[in-house]
Computed example of a mutant assay.
Amino acid sequence: MADKPTPSRRLQNPAIFVCDLQEKFRNAIWQFDKIVLTSQKVLRAAKILNLPLYVTTQNGSKLGPIVPEIQELVGDAVVTADKTRFSMMIPEIEPHFPHVLSSTSVAGTQKPPREVVIVGIESHICITQTAMDLRARGHKVYVLADAVSSCNPQEIPLAFDRLRAEGVTVTTSESWLYELMGDARIAEFRDIAKLVKETGQDTKTALGALMSSKI
C-alpha cells in the first residue's frame, strides 16, 4: 500500500492580530482577565505553529504597554506598533495584507487571501473596524468570542451580529485552533492537543464568563 501523503494544515496563510491588550484597560474592560487567558493560549499555539503576529497598542504614551502576561509571547511579532487609528490596518501593517484582487506575486499570480484571527479590544470599535478593513481587502477574518470584549458587555452581541453580516467568522479559540490544523496527522498536533488540555480549565472559565452576553 502506498504511503499516505503528508497532511497539510487546513488554513494555509494564517496570521494573528493582537489588538490593544494594555494594562490601563484592565479595570475598564468587561472580563478583561478572561480574554487575556484566552489570548495566552492562542499565542502559545502561535509559537508551536510558527504563526506570524501583528500587535498594536492604542495611544501607548497615555494608555501604557501591553499587559505583562503576554509581553514575552509577542516578543517576536512581525509588527509591533502604536496607533491612534481605531483599526489595526495602519501603515506599518497594511503592506503585509494587500488587496487580494489587485495584488500579484513575483511570478505574476494572484496572492491568496490571508486568514486572520483577531483577539483583543474593543469588540465594537477596534475589533470591528479592523475586521471590516481586512474583509474589504479580500481576506478571511476570524474573531474569537472568548478572546474579545468591550467596556459595556451589551455592545458585544451587537458587534458580533454586524461582523457576521460583513462575512466575518465569529467562533471560539478551540474551534479555530482545530480548524487551523485540520488533520490530526500534522506534526504539531500532539503539542497543540497538549496545550488545549493544559488550558482546559482556563477555557471553561473564559467561556463561562463571556458567553452569557454574546449568544
Rank of each mutant, 00 (worst) to 15 (best):
G75W: 02
M88G: 06
Q71C: 06
K62Y: 11
V67K: 02
S87G: 08
S87Q: 11
G75K: 13
M88Y: 12
P91A: 08
Q71E: 14
R85E: 10
K62A: 15
M89G: 02
V74K: 09
V74S: 01
A81F: 09
K83V: 06
V74F: 09
T80C: 05
M88S: 12
E69V: 11
V79A: 04
I90R: 11
L63N: 12
D82E: 12
V79G: 10
L63H: 04
L73H: 04
L73Q: 10
K83M: 14
L73I: 07
V74L: 07
V67L: 07
S61D: 12
V67C: 02
R85A: 15
I90S: 02
V78R: 14
L73S: 04
Q71V: 08
L63F: 11
L73Y: 10
G75R: 13
T84M: 13
D82T: 10
V74H: 02
K83R: 15
P91N: 08
A81I: 06
F86E: 01
L63M: 10
I66G: 03
E69F: 06
E69Q: 12
T80I: 12
R85V: 11
P65H: 04
A81E: 07
M88C: 08
K83I: 09
I66S: 05
E72R: 07
A81C: 11
M89H: 03
D82W: 10
S61A: 14
E72S: 12
Q71P: 00
R85N: 10
M89Q: 00
Q71S: 13
I70L: 08
T84P: 01
V78K: 15
D76K: 10
L73T: 05
A81V: 14
G64V: 01
Q71I: 07
V78A: 12
T84C: 03
G75H: 13
A81P: 05
K83W: 14
V67E: 04
A81N: 01
P91I: 11
K83N: 02
T80E: 02
T84A: 09
S87H: 09
M89R: 09
R85H: 08
V67I: 12
E69W: 00
V67D: 03
V79D: 00
G64H: 04
T80D: 01
V74T: 15
M88I: 07
V78D: 00
A77Q: 03
T80V: 13
I90V: 13
I66K: 01
I66M: 06
T84V: 15
I66R: 00
Q71K: 14
M89Y: 04
L73K: 05
D76P: 03
G64C: 04
I70Q: 09
G75D: 05
P91S: 06
T84K: 14
P68E: 14
D76Q: 14
V78M: 05
S61V: 04
K83Y: 12
K83P: 03
I70M: 04
I66P: 03
P68A: 10
P68R: 11
P91G: 00
S61K: 12
S61T: 11
